[in-house]
Simulated scan of single mutants.
Amino acid sequence: MTRVAIFDLDGTLVDSPRAIVETFAAAFDAMGVEPRDPADVRATIGLPLEEAFGRLLGVPRDDARVPEGVARYQEAFRTVILPRARSLIFPGVPEGLGELRRRGIETAVATSKFHASADALLSAAGLRDRFAVLVGADDVTHPKPHPESGHAVLAQSGAEPEHAVMVGDTTHDLLMARAAGIRSVAVTYGVHTRSELATAEPSHIADSFEEVVAYILKMLPQG
C-alpha cells in the first residue's frame, strides 16, 4: 500500500509570497506597467501565472500582455527568489519531510507554478530530492482547484485517494483535494487566513509544519 503526502509549494514549504509580490513588481516595471497593490497580488498566489496576470492586468488570458508578463516574471524569478530559496524554507520542513519518509510515506508536490520553475525553486532550496513526484501547472490541462493535479500525483505514485493527504495554504489546494477525494491539511502560515481556509472544509488546520506532520501520521497510519 502506497501512502503519499502531497504538498503545495509557495506558502506551504517555502515562504515565498513576499518574494512573489516583489517578482510581480519587477515584471510590471519591466513591462512599463504601474505596480499593483501588494494585497491584490497576494490574492492571486496559488493561481496559474496566466490567470494571475490576466486578473491583475484586467485583460483576458489570451491578451498579448499576459504571456509577456509571464516571461518577465520568470526572468525576475531567477534573480529575486532563487538566490534566497534556502532562507525561505519554513521552520521544520526538512526535518518533517525526513520523518515522513522514515515512516514510509512518499512525498510529492502539486503546485500552480510551472514545472521548471518549481523544480528550480526546490533545487535551490535543497529540497528537490525529497520528492519523487512533482506536478506543475503545465503538467495538467486544468490546474488547481480542479482535481487533475491530485489525480496526476495519485497516478504517478500508485496511491489510492484514501491513502493520500494534501497540504496547502490556500483554498485552491483544499478544493482540489476535496474534488479528488483526498483528505487535506490547511496551514495558517501562508497566504489565506484561517477563516478563508475553513470555507474549503479541510480535514485539519495546522499552525506549524510540526503539526502538519503529526496530522499526516495520524491520517496515514502504517498498515
Rank of each mutant, 00 (worst) to 15 (best):
E51L: 07
L122F: 04
G92L: 13
Q222L: 04
I45P: 01
F131Q: 02
A25F: 05
E51W: 02
E162T: 09
P17M: 05
S184W: 09
P67F: 08
M1E: 15
P161F: 06
S123Y: 14
E99T: 07
F131Y: 05
L134A: 11
P48C: 14
Q74M: 07
V66Y: 03
G11K: 00
K144Q: 08
V109E: 01
E160F: 05
V66G: 06
E22W: 12
A85P: 07
P35C: 14
I20H: 00
I182K: 01
A125H: 01
I81N: 06
L88D: 12
S208Y: 10
V93M: 11
D29V: 02
A19Q: 08
Y215P: 03
V213C: 09
V109F: 08
G58W: 02
E75R: 03
R42T: 02
E95G: 12
M31W: 03
R55D: 04
R84D: 13
V167I: 15
L154S: 09
F24D: 00
V140I: 15
D129R: 05
D207F: 15
R103P: 00
H163A: 05
A71I: 04
Q222H: 12
G104S: 11
M1T: 13
L127V: 08
F24K: 00
F77I: 08
G46T: 02
F53E: 00
P38D: 12
G46R: 02
E210S: 10
V165S: 07
A110R: 00
A71F: 08
H142F: 14
R103W: 01
E210T: 12
S208V: 11
G181K: 01
G32N: 07
A85W: 06
D119C: 10
H151Y: 12
F53C: 00
T107E: 02
I89L: 10
L217V: 12
Q156E: 13
K144G: 01
A152H: 08
Y189E: 11
A214N: 11
D40Y: 02
P145L: 09
T170R: 01
G190R: 04
L88V: 14
A152I: 09
I6K: 03
A214P: 07
G58M: 07
V66A: 02
S203C: 09
P161Q: 05
Y215M: 14
S184M: 08
M1D: 15
G136D: 05
G126P: 07
R61T: 04
R78M: 15
A186Q: 01
E95K: 10
M31T: 04
T2H: 15
A200E: 00
A110H: 04
M31N: 04
S87R: 11
T199W: 10
P145G: 12
P60L: 13
V41N: 04
G96R: 03
A159C: 13
H142K: 15
G181Y: 03
E162R: 11
A180L: 04
A25L: 00
G223P: 03
S157R: 11
R18I: 13
E51T: 14
L154H: 02
M1K: 15
V135S: 06
A132T: 15
E34Y: 01
A214S: 15
A118H: 09
D129V: 15
E106V: 08
A159L: 10
S16G: 10
V185N: 02
V41Q: 00
V213D: 03
G11P: 05
A164G: 08
E99V: 10
A164D: 00
A25E: 00
L175Q: 04
E201H: 14
V135D: 03
A206D: 04
P143M: 12
V33S: 02
P145E: 09
F53I: 01
